[in-house]
Each structure stands twice: as structure tokens, then as C-alpha cells.
């Protein structure tokens, strides 16, 4: 529909959109790579959505995770690669988790809306990281606003050259399966689900809402940080200004389409990644001149909003 409106070569553009991403190793790898980034961040969103809350700070958390990883990898150049990677991973997980922790703290102390504070904290962090990348931590690559490239020994190799798909990307589906196990097969997961369905019933069961909010937000922030880590060590090999762009909202869409089921985040991420990569390809090949991805994102989220409300009605009816 969108192609019909915006493209003068509607049919060739539509055909290219549907099949183009599977005709070359580069685009196929790009689809899979983007999907794995969506999976890791989408899992973070799925966990917090299970409790009935929203984490709108995904973009800032991904950026903070990636930036922390890049900086630690550059600062630990003299250490063995495994130690260096371990430190970078810890930093990538800790910084966004702290950002999310602040939201949990504001919720507990001030009853501040989590969706508002996660967004505000993320919006404050993004320009701050931009300023650090443009200033003190900038590498010397002409006009490129990025931290210095990480050394060869800490890069996860690409497995479908020339695409950016790397070995570490394979960890994202595994994380989703672990997430599924956590939510549907553990007592903690049951607590998350019951809190999401009814706060009152969770309190009646003796679950601590405070503990659930803190833990789920920290896990959500950490998973967004892991997304940043994967992006820096497997895709870009540097933290460039704005690499997170759109990733947070797309991951949220994946989690919503998957109805916050971590296992379903895998196919929803693959589908959305295919749509966005194809849209990018069509936009480039047919010179659409405007942000087609933004339009698709908006339409997609609008459709989800209807489906989501329908799903909630369905759940309520069954409960």
C-alpha cells in the first residue's frame, strides 16, 4: 500500500521489496543481523511488558551499552582479549541496567510513571553520549563521529561476508529461548505474569511488586545493553554516533507483535527485520527521497495497537 502511494515504479518496487532481500548474501546477512539485534532488545521489552509496564528508554540503553563496551574495549587494549571482552560485556550490561534502576527507584519513591522516566533518562543520556563521541572519545577518522575501532582480537568475525552478520549474533535466539524458559517455566516468571495480569492478585499471592519492578527493569535494561554490545563487537566494531537509531522502537514493536512471548520474539524480529531491510533497499533503489522506514514503523505500531487491545480484551474475557 505504501509503495503504491510513494513509488512511481509500484510493481517493480513491490517485487523488489518481497524478494530483493533474499537475492544476495549481503542483504540476507543484513536481515539476519538486524533481526538478532531486535531479538535481544525485544526480549528486554518482552520481559517488562509481561509485568504490564513499558520501557521506552530502549534506544538510550542500547546506545549506552554499545558506548560502554567500545570504551572499555579501547581502555583494556593491553589485556588478553577474553578479559577485555568480559569487562566490556560487564560494562555494557551494568550501565543500561543502572539507567533502568533509576526508573525503578523513581517509581518506588515518587510513583513516577515508568514509561515517562525511562524515556526521560534515555533522552538525557543520548545527547550526553553524542557529546562524548564528538569530543573526548572520538577516533581520528575524518568526518566520522565514532569512537576508535576496537582491535581485531576482540572482534567477533563476520560469517556471511560481506554482510555484517557475525558469530555473536547467534546468541540472540538463544537468549530468547532462555527468556521463554524464565517466563513460562520458573516461579519468578509466574510472578511476572501474575503481576502483569493483576497487581491486586499478585499482592494477594504475597508477591513483592517492588522486587518484581526492580528486577524486571534491571533485566530489561541489561538486555538492551547486550544489544549494544552485540552491535559494537559483532556489527560495527566501533560505537558511531546514532547507531541505535530506530532500534529501540522496532524492538518494542517486535515484543508487542510477539505478545511479550520471548520465543515469539524470534519470528517477529525476523519479519520486521526483513520489512525494514527491504524498505531500505527499495528506498535506495527507487530513490523515494523520504523516510519510508518511519512510515512503515508508524503503520506497524498502529496495527499493533489494535491487535494489542484486542488481545487484552481476549485475555480479560478468559480470566
Amino acid at each position: 500500500m505504501i509503495l503504491l502511494v510513494v513509488s512511481s515504479h509500484t510493481f517493480s518496487a513491490a517485487s523488489d521489496f518481497l524478494t530483493g532481500s533474499f537475492t544476495s548474501g549481503y542483504y540476507l546477512g543484513a536481515v539476519l543481523n538486524t533481526a538478532t539485534l531486535f531479538m535481544a532488545a525485544g526480549l528486554g521489552d518482552a520481559i517488562i511488558l509481561t509485568t504490564g509496564e513499558f520501557n521506552l528508554g530502549g534506544e538510550g540503553q542500547i546506545y549506552a551499552g554499545g558506548f560502554a563496551a567500545a570504551i572499555v574495549l579501547n581502555l583494556t587494549e593491553n589485556m588478553p582479549p577474553s578479559v577485555s571482552l568480559l569487562c566490556a560485556f560487564a560494562a555494557a550490561v551494568a550501565v543500561p541496567a543502572l539507567m533502568a534502576l533509576l526508573s525503578a527507584l523513581l517509581k518506588e519513591l515518587k510513583n513516577a510513571s515508568i514509561l515517562l522516566t525511562t524515556f526521560l533518562i534515555s533522552a538525557a543520556v543520548i545527547p550526553f553520549i553524542d557529546s562524548l563521541i564528538a569530543g573526548k572519545f572520538r577516533g581520528s577518522y575524518g568526518n566520522l563521529l565514532a569512537t576508535p575501532f576496537i582491535r581485531e582480537s576482540v572482534r567477533f568475525p563476520h560469517i556471511l561476508n560481506p554482510s555484517p552478520l557475525s558469530v555473536i549474533s547467534l546468541s540472540a535466539p538463544l537468549l530468547c529461548i532462555l527468556g521463554w524458559y524464565l517466563i513460562y517455566r520458573t516461579g519468578y516468571g509466574k510472578q511476572l505474569q501474575i503481576t502483569g495480569i493483576s497487581n491486586e492478585f499478585a499482592a494477594y499471592c504475597g508477591y513483592s511488586r517492588k522486587k518484581i519492578i526492580y528486577s524486571s527493569l534491571i533485566i530489561s535494561g541489561a538486555l538492551h545493553g547486550i544489544t549494544g554490545f552485540i552491535a559494537v563487537t559483532g556489527t560495527y566494531y566501533t560505537c558511531h554516533s546514532g547507531f541505535y537509531s530506530g532500534m529501540g522502537w522496532d524492538a518494542l514493536s517486535c515484543a508487542l507483535i510477539a505478545a511479550s512471548n520471548p520465543a515469539a520474539v524470534i519470528p517477529s524480529s525476523l519479519i520486521l527485520s526483513w520489512i525494514f531491510t527491504s524498505a531500505d533497499r527499495v528506498s535506495l533503489n527507487y530513490n523515494s527521497g523520504f523516510d519510508i522506514n518511519l512510515l512503515i514503523q508508524g503503520v506497524m505500531l498502529a496495527c499493533i495497537s489494535i491487535q494489542y487491545a484486542g488481545g487484552m480484551r481476549h485475555d480479560r474475557h478468559h480470566s
Binding site: 508487542l256 519510508i292 518511519l294
Partner: peptide
């Protein structure tokens, strides 16, 4: 009966696309 919060998020993104 759409979810008003998600629909509003969609509108924010959609309005950016319309402007573009």
C-alpha cells in the same frame, strides 16, 4: 478500541513520516 497509548506512539512516529 485500540490501545490508546500504543496508538499515540504510532501517531508520533507516523507524524514524523508525514512531515518527511
Amino acid at each position: 478500541h485500540a490501545n490508546p497509548f500504543l496508538a499515540a506512539l504510532a501517531l508520533n512516529i507516523f507524524s514524523g513520516a508525514i512531515v518527511s
